[in-house]
């Protein structure tokens, strides 16, 4: 449905997105993982037509995406939850949903059904009539997500949806994203949290300084770029760390020469993938 074909975007001398290509597959959660400034939000803005690529084409539903940001037809199929909370705080959560639903052409009972469904999705049924300014940060985040799906789009773009939320609210958002996947939606999920990408995304594109460093499923990325894991052992001489691709063999080898009081295996993850690909830690 969504295709980036050798897309580049510059802001002055800064090449925010550099020759980015990928194609979403049906019913997957697609992750854009990278540190701040990697080009994730620029990519999202091009995907929804807010920005025009300088080079390449963003295609949508197998047709050339109309770069006019006001083209109505393409927008009916996508929903965006911006990185910052984008809600009208002076009106209620239900009214926010109602308003954006109307903009997407919903009317009457269809609209009310969708409003009810989205309040339920965001677990805000009890506070739907309260003004948004009275909501907690986590509730606003969930409503921010719910507004993106009020018109039941096929493609949902979530731009760092967990920024600034507590662990409990983050888990609630994870559950909503998984629910969207279960409903067959395509989801583009940008994050700089490795754990989120690892938990939620079927495939992950690793971005750094606008360039696509790697793209695959999480296990495949780890296999290809993760390198060896680390076996941490504690003996009478203290704690030591050993790189290994076969932790059991390494442990047996160590036990043959000394008494191991405690051990822990740290497999490679997306953090190590990113480190190996870029030479920098993900959170640098």
């Amino acid at each position: 449905m969504l295709v980036f074909d050798h897309v580049s975007k510059c802001f002055g001398d800064l090449r925010a997105v550099d020759d980015l290509s990928f194609e979403l597959e049906a019913g997957e959660v697609f992750g854009l993982l990278g540190p701040n400034g990697a080009g994730k939000t620029t990519a999202i803005n091009m995907a929804v037509g807010l920005l025009e690529p300088d080079e390449g084409v963003v295609r949508f539903a197998d047709e050339a995406f109309d770069r006019n940001p006001r083209d109505a037809e393409n927008r009916r199929s996508l929903g965006l939850a911006p990185q910052s909370i984008a809600l009208y705080e002076q009106i209620s959560g239900a009214d926010n949903l109602r308003f954006f639903g109307r903009l997407h052409g919903l009317r009457g009972s269809d609209l009310e059904e969708r409003v009810a469904a989205c309040l339920d999705f965001a677990d805000l049924v009890d506070v739907g009539k309260k003004v948004v300014s009275k909501y907690s940060g986590g509730m606003q985040r969930r409503l921010n997500l719910a507004v993106a799906i009020i018109h039941d789009p096929e493609l949902v773009l979530l731009d760092e949806p967990t920024v600034g939320v507590d662990p409990q609210s983050r888990n609630a958002i994870f559950e909503r994203v998984e629910q969207l996947r279960d409903e067959g939606k395509q989801v583009v999920y940008t994050t700089h949290y490795m754990e989120e990408a690892q938990r939620l995304c079927d495939r992950v594109a690793i971005l750094d300084r606008g360039r696509l460093m790697a793209l695959d499923t999480v296990p495949a990325l780890i296999t290809a770029h993760g390198g060896p894991g680390n076996l941490v052992v504690r003996t009478g001489d203290g704690e030591s760390r050993h790189e290994t691709t076969d932790p059991l063999a390494t442990l047996a080898e160590l036990q043959a020469s000394q008494t191991v009081d405690h051990f822990q295996y740290l497999p490679p993850d997306l953090e190590t993938v990113f480190l190996n690909l870029t030479g920098r830690a993900l959170r640098d």
Binding site: P69, R75, L78
Partner: peptide, 10 residues
């Protein structure tokens, strides 16, 4: 940020 939402609406 609501302007962004309006701009991506149909």
């Amino acid at each position: 940020g609501t302007l962004m939402r309006l701009l991506v609406a149909p």
